[in-house]
Amino acid sequence: MALEHKVRGVDHAAFPTFDPAGTVRFYRDVLGFPVVHSICAAGWGPENHPDFIHFFFDIGNDDRIAFFYYFGLEPQHTHERGDVYAGFGPEVPEFFVRSRHLAIHVEDDADLLEYRRRLDDSEWPVEMQIQHETIESIYTHDPNGYMVEFTRAMRPVTPQEDLDANLTIDALLDVVAEPDPSFGKLLARKAELIVARAADWEAAREGAQV
């Protein structure tokens, strides 16, 4: 049986910043995300923790993005690539550097274009607008170098895509449990799972609808 799914989205995702002024300009003044919480904390504890401000912006749905600004803390790396949390040398491929990002959901095409307009009028214009498989997204980097995506669904997700996702993950777990995992091995394993399970899934679903 599946475990009961009781969580309710993102409370907050937290990131360090060395540029609180730019961060507030970007999230509050350019994007219009309200400041909804902040903590002014004197440093304490065993690690010479600096005094800090922990501040939060509403990203919709009562979810929040939060930042730590530490008084007196110098940047922790000197790499030009990456963000203020993690820097990368020239040996690290670009796709890897760009892999970690925050994607914020918007309702529709009009709202996506509204955020595009706000960004394009700012110091942080949209760098890419891409139609993926079933979503369309815009991307920029915030003043801290964190990649931020805004995305809208081009159509609702269908039930068969949930089945497909689960078959993919089961196939992936089987493939990575063996030496030398590859895309070809995953597709071969997934074909076996489709043959074993897809017909029954559809029959069970039709039965549930009767």
Binding site: H132, E133, D164, G184, L187, A188, K190, A191, I194, V195
Partner: peptide, 18 residues
């Protein structure tokens, strides 16, 4: 198909090789 769709359209392959 646009590229994002094209490169992710395969769910499985049996009895063959891409």
């Amino acid at each position: 198909c646009r590229h994002a769709v094209w490169y992710s359209c395969i769910a499985g392959v049996s009895g063959g090789t891409i």
